[in-house]
């Protein structure tokens, strides 16, 4: 029975915030471990998803670098200034999400919800800002197929936008359940997963923006 004792000790050290119902639905009572706590599959899953998304954008950006080096038809586009504002908004949203998480840990439920709402609002603002950048370019007559540089501009911003919209859906999910999360009943893993993904979208945008500044 020495084995049993040892295991229970290990279980305790791996204990967490006791959720997992929503994101870790597959890990039903694995060997008596509290699934969401000991094995937050959602968290592992999001890391793996991020690896795949990284490859997806690596393919696009390497195609861009190769394509830019190909010929004389690569005409640079003046990037809309609103992109800088959008970048600031997105960075701010990561900050508010962290603040929200911090407040939840500190037990300040009201502030937790407030920062969460702010994050979702900033996310929407970012997407609206990106759309405005498109409108500005379109108004200048710079369309998708005008030249390869604008093709890549639209392509990268759209692909990032779609991925970010996914993160926004996850935020809406949290917003809709903010009371129960604040009570500690659900959503610990969901919050962690969303935060991770949201920060990833942030870093991804910084990378893409840098690529756009350098090449487009």
């Amino acid at each position: 029975m020495a084995t049993q004792t040892k295991l229970s000790v290990l279980e305790e050290t791996r204990g967490g915030d006791g959720d997992g119902g929503n994101w870790g639905e597959g890990s039903r009572g694995r060997f008596g471990w509290d699934p969401g706590a000991a094995l937050p599959v959602g968290l592992t899953g999001i890391w793996i998803a991020m690896a795949s998304i990284t490859m997806f954008f690596a393919a696009f950006t390497s195609a861009m670098v190769v394509r830019a080096g190909l010929g004389a038809d690569w005409t640079r586009v003046a990037l809309p200034h609103i992109l800088y504002l959008n970048t600031a908004i997105l960075l701010a949203s990561s900050l508010t999400l962290e603040l929200s998480k911090h407040c939840l840990k500190a037990g300040r439920a009201g502030q937790f919800s407030g920062w969460l709402f702010a994050t979702a609002g900033l996310g929407i603002a970012f997407l609206a800002g990106q759309l405005d950048a498109w409108r500005e370019l379109a108004a200048r007559g710079v369309y998708l197929a005008r030249n390869p540089a604008c093709s890549f501009f639209y392509l990268l911003t759209a692909a990032h936008g779609i991925h970010l919209a996914g993160g926004l859906l996850a935020l809406f999910y949290l917003v809709a359940r903010h009371r129960r999360i604040a009570e500690g009943a659900i959503g610990g893993t969901a919050l962690k997963v969303t935060t991770l993904y949201w920060h990833f979208m942030d870093i991804l945008w910084l990378y893409l923006f840098l690529m756009l500044i350098l090449w487009v």
Binding site: L39, G45, S52
Partner: peptide, 11 residues
């Protein structure tokens, strides 16, 4: 693939 990797790592 996401499912397979997570399952192998966590379960």
């Amino acid at each position: 693939a996401l499912n397979f990797i997570t399952t192998t790592l966590d379960l």
